[in-house]
Every structure is written in C-alpha cells, then in structure tokens.
Design a protein around this nucleic acid. Structure first.
Lengths: 192, 192
DNA sequence: ACCTGAACACCGTTCAAGT
DNA sequence: ACCTGAACACCGTTCAAGT
C-alpha cells in the first residue's frame, strides 16, 4: 500500500515554535519534574515537535536552553524609582522577599545559577540594587559591597532552604520565613 | 590462535578500589575538567578499572558519588574549642575565609551544594557555627539566625564570584577578596 | 524558513559471568 | 569479594532531506 505523507495536520494550525515558548515549556518541566528530567527529546514532546526542531531556534542547543532558564529566573531587578533616604531599606526588604520567592518557585534552576555559564545573567539585578542604595544616600563603595552581600545572602539562603538544613541536635523543623527575615534584617541593618 | 586470558597483571599489584579513592578521583576530574565531564566511564579510566567496578563500592551509583563529593567539600566545620566572648568574631571570620577558599577550589561542586540531594551534608557545619556563637555569648535565637545567615552569605557570595558578576556599567574587574571581607564584616558586625 | 528522520557517539545501569 | 563484558534504554547533536 502506498502511503502518501500528510504534512502533519497539526503543523498547520498550531502556533509556531518560538524561543519564548521553548523556555516556558522547559521551565514547566524543571519545576514539575526536576532539572534532571529536562531533555531535548522530552522538551520536544511537550511542544509537540521533534527534538531537533528546537535547534532551529536555539542553535547552541541545550547550553543555550539552560542559559535562557537562568536569565528568565535570575533577572528580577529592584525598582529604583521613588527610592528615598527614608525608604530604601523597605525597598530592599521587599525586593529580597520577592526574589527569594522567585528562586524557591524555581528551585530546580538554582544549580544553574551557581555555574560559570552565562556570567552576565545576574549583573542587571546587582546593578539595580546598587542604584537603590545610591538613591538611598549610601556611599558608592558601601553600595557596591551591600549589593553583592544582599544578593549573595538571598541566593545562599535559598540554597540552604532548598536543602532544608536543620541545626544539628535540634530536629524540630526550621521556620524558614522567620529565619530569612531575621537574617535579612541583620544584613540590611548593617548597611549605613 | 587460542588466547588464554591473563588475570590482568595490573590487578594483582595495584591498591584495591575504595570509596575514598573513588571520591578523590572524581573530585580531581571535576576540579580539572568540570562537573559535566564526570562520567562513570571516565572515572573508571582514571582508576584503571571498568566503570562497572565502581558500583560494587557505591551501589546507588552516580547519585551516591555526587553525594560523596558534596560531603567531602561542604563539611568544613568551625573549631569551637577556645572560643571566648572576646574572639568569636575572629573565629567566624577565619572560618569564613577558609570555607570560601574551599568552595572556590572546588567550584565545580557548587551546583551540587544547591540541590535537594543529601540534605544533611551541611548541618554539621551549621551546627559548629551555632556552637561558636553560643560560646561567644550570643543568645540562642540570634545564634541560630546568624549561623544560617553567615553560611548563606558565604555560599551565595562564592556563587557570585564563580560567575564573576560585574556591576552594571563599571567594567573594571571586581576585587573579590576585598568585596568578600567587606560583606563579611557587614554580616558579622550586625550580630550582637 | 521551519521541521523531520535516521544516524553517531556517548551516557547510566543491569545482569550474568568470571576469578 | 571484587571485577569484567555485553547489553539495554536513553542521551545531545549532525546532517541530509523534506515542505
């Protein structure tokens, strides 16, 4: 029997692939099943496409895909508009709470955030923190230090939370929300 | 021609495999070539053994191998003996410098430190920090917060260093040593 | 321009077999 | 007890081909 190949009825109607759709589908897999289960073939399935089609949009392949995930998750800059000497601590506190929530919501991406890949991904975020501090009246040198310290704290604390590091001895679970706020106060309180 | 199989002359003389030797060889690969190049087959080669021999010592396979790497790198507790109300800040500062150096020396392991796997790996370290603080006369609640804050900061800062996150705008390289010390002062200075 | 299908070199892991 | 060799199911990626 002669099989005439249909041009895949689906292919006609479905929205075409795009970098954005690919990244979103990848993030959905990572969030739902973990980073280890993000494969090009599975990603293709999720997008109802052959895995090889992805390479047309991401020529650098999986490397580029992971870079995209990092940018998507890690670029959450602080809003510097309207910052004054009176409110900069509150602005930083609010940013930190948001950023922490972001990291925890996509905990599977955290390991990628800690890799040599894609070095620029965090610099807009660091820059925005520095700008908030500067507008708050903090000296430039101190602002540079505080920006890195704050971002470092938030990322590192998220790492500890994800591992659910208990104190030795004490085996009652840690109240991570309270713990985070207290540590945050310690970091921000030290800036002057 | 009949080939009589020799029982592999090497096998007689070489020191037998052990978990410790396996972990050390794995760490050498990660440090030298990166985490992505750590495969069971390559690890077998480095140990002059078939990859499958490793499973005899690590029945849980690669998972167990990675757990071993995390424990090896992440368990650097602070020495609490001899801590007083006068010197606890110096003790923490010295520990932090050591621990940072450790993380940067094995930067390839950093992504593993930020994964859900092996949750207990960091808790002896956290516990030792808490003990230093307690002996320094810091109240229990504050000590618990400060221990997590400090460890979080050190890990998070190491992550930023490894990515070499520059401030936006400024493109002269960051002096990471100075930056780390300044941020450390900020964190430790806030504890009272 | 966008996607497919077959192929290649490599993974982690199992399992039966050797000593 | 300790290690090997073949095999299996799965990777990421290339490349020529289709529309």
């Amino acid at each position: 029997m002669l099989m005439v190949r249909q041009p895949s009825i689906n292919a006609q109607h479905r929205t075409p692939l795009s970098t954005e759709r690919i990244i979103e589908a990848a993030l959905r897999i990572v969030d739902g099943q973990g980073l280890g289960r993000l494969t090009m073939r599975r990603l293709g399935d999720a997008l109802e496409v052959e895995a090889m089609a992805i390479y047309h949009h991401l020529p650098r392949g999986k490397e580029q895909l992971l870079d995209g995930l990092v940018v998507h998750v890690a670029s959450g800059p602080a809003e510097a508009a309207g910052v004054t000497a009176a409110n900069w601590r509150d602005v930083l506190r609010a940013w930190a709470a948001d950023y922490r929530a972001r990291l925890l919501a996509h905990a599977g991406v955290l390991p990628l955030l800690v890799t040599r890949r894609n070095p620029a991904a965090l610099s807009t975020t660091v820059g925005s923190l520095r700008e908030v501090l500067r507008r708050g009246g903090v000296a430039d040198d101190t602002a540079a230090v505080a920006a890195h310290t704050l971002l470092g704290y938030v990322i590192g604390h998220a790492a500890l939370e994800v591992r659910d590091t208990r104190e030795d001895g004490a085996d009652r679970p840690v109240d991570w929300d309270a713990r985070f706020d207290a540590g945050l106060g310690l970091v921000i309180g030290g800036v002057r």
